[in-house]
Design a protein around this nucleic acid. Structure first.
Lengths: 245, 245
DNA sequence: CCGAAATGTCTATTAATATAGACAACTATA
DNA sequence: TATAGTTGTCTATATTAATAGACATTTCGG
């Protein structure tokens, strides 16, 4: 359990960032729950085998994220410690899924468009390439912290008012219902983890070098006809995906 | 689709590493499939808004991974481009899951031990804390490339010969069968993505800063009694997890 | 066989990262 | 109210990362 906290040099990742990532991990693992504080800078410096100033750079980055707060004379206190558990199942719904974990969830519409379906999207939705589909870009937050950003495609022929309905109802599920689809299930999910790109860093308010989990999913009506192709990028340090089989 | 390839400075992640990660992503996305080559260094430098030497550092890192090979006068060729699709379902089995994607799969036993079950393991296996369990550490490879490393725990009371059987049969499924358990299913899976630690970098032969997907899973016999608690770390740039619901 | 286009190698300079040490400022407690 | 323990700030220096430019070397097509 007490994994050796080692950092490596000349890897293209600055020591202070490696250390910040490791401390963030320790916080979310609950390693410091007894005290509610990060160990003193000198102790951390010894643990990682670096200078105290290097540790200070790491802690400054974490303070910048709002994860910790240093108080002169006392120490560095942990402000926040979250990793929302996010269910992935046939019936995944964003806000429901988070259950009682967040007081408030929000889905914000970033962009909408109607465009001809390209290869992957057309194949997933099983519509001819070039057929019109509606694209919605969303950012979902829990308690004001962005958790994921997503791009969804819906067949325009079947759900022409998807964008308007979503804007009014603030929910994909309700927008489907308003257009005659009472229920839908997930028929396919693929997961990939990678570094966040610049757009994602901004949308999810991540620090550079952060990780996103990209879930490419297809939802279908009860008859199995695809109704939604979506690509959701989760902020990896804020969520844990729970797969219900 | 043509996402803007932007890099950021003063982030603690060297530009050459950010660029290497982006190029690796482009390769696995198939962006360069038409030519089978990476664009010329000058072009990449212009795209990323950096000096040619910085791009060269990135390409050198990728060449070090064996992903590309530069040939003077011709260009930089893509050597390898893989992302194994790995199914996650109630009946996930490592070698079966990879199907025809790899010619050869191998599971190597790194370490074995008998130890008292600690909190999380005991809870997952539903045995009293302190009850003996068998720990097996494995590295799984496909075609000689490490794909994942895992730590599994089995209740010693029920499967006392787990380690020996695995060593002989080279398969968890067969080792279970040899001890009277013909079938088992996955009852729980949790996924988290994070940076690889030093041990994982070595085991999976990753370059520093690489990402792992950590899957914490519980397998149970047909009656629903847990038989295995496992924590598997996948090399994120080599796999795509496919969830069958 | 020439020249365009690509990678390889070298030098020099600037900016960012990391180390080192000293001491000030603040907190909690004996 | 000392004092130990902690964070904050300053200076100085060495190492690494990034930029800039020049030119050599190799490949390939006209």
């Amino acid at each position: 359990m007490n994994a050796k906290k080692a950092v490596e040099r000349q890897t293209g990742v600055a020591l202070w960032r490696q250390i910040a990532d490791l401390i963030r991990l320790s916080i979310s693992n609950g390693d410091y729950d007894q005290t509610g504080m990060v160990p003193p800078e000198i102790v951390l410096a010894a643990q990682f085998g670096v200078n105290r100033h290097t540790v200070r750079s790491a802690l400054a980055a974490l303070a910048d994220e709002g994860l910790v707060q240093a108080i002169q004379g006392r120490g560095t206190m942990i402000q926040r410690k979250e990793r929302l558990s996010f269910p992935i199942s046939r019936r995944t719904r964003f806000s429901q899924g988070l259950g009682g974990q967040a007081r408030e969830t929000e889905a914000k519409l970033l962009a909408r468009a109607v465009l001809p379906a390209a290869g992957e999207v057309a194949a997933g939705l099983r519509i001819p390439p070039g057929a019109p589909c509606i694209q919605l870009d969303l950012v979902s937050s829990a308690d004001g912290r962005p958790v994921s950003c997503s791009t969804s495609f819906f067949p325009e022929g079947r759900f022409p008012a998807m964008a308007e309905q979503f804007e009014e109802l603030r929910s994909i599920t309700k927008a489907f219902a308003a257009q005659g689809l009472a229920d839908y299930v997930r028929i396919s999910t693929e997961l990939v983890a990678r570094h966040a790109d610049t757009a994602e860093l901004a949308l999810l308010r991540l620090s550079p070098g952060a990780i996103v989990i990209e879930a490419t999913a297809i939802n279908a009506d009860p008859e199995g006809v695809p109704v939604q192709f979506s690509r959701t990028r989760f902020a990896a340090d804020r969520v844990k995906l729970k797969i219900d089989t």
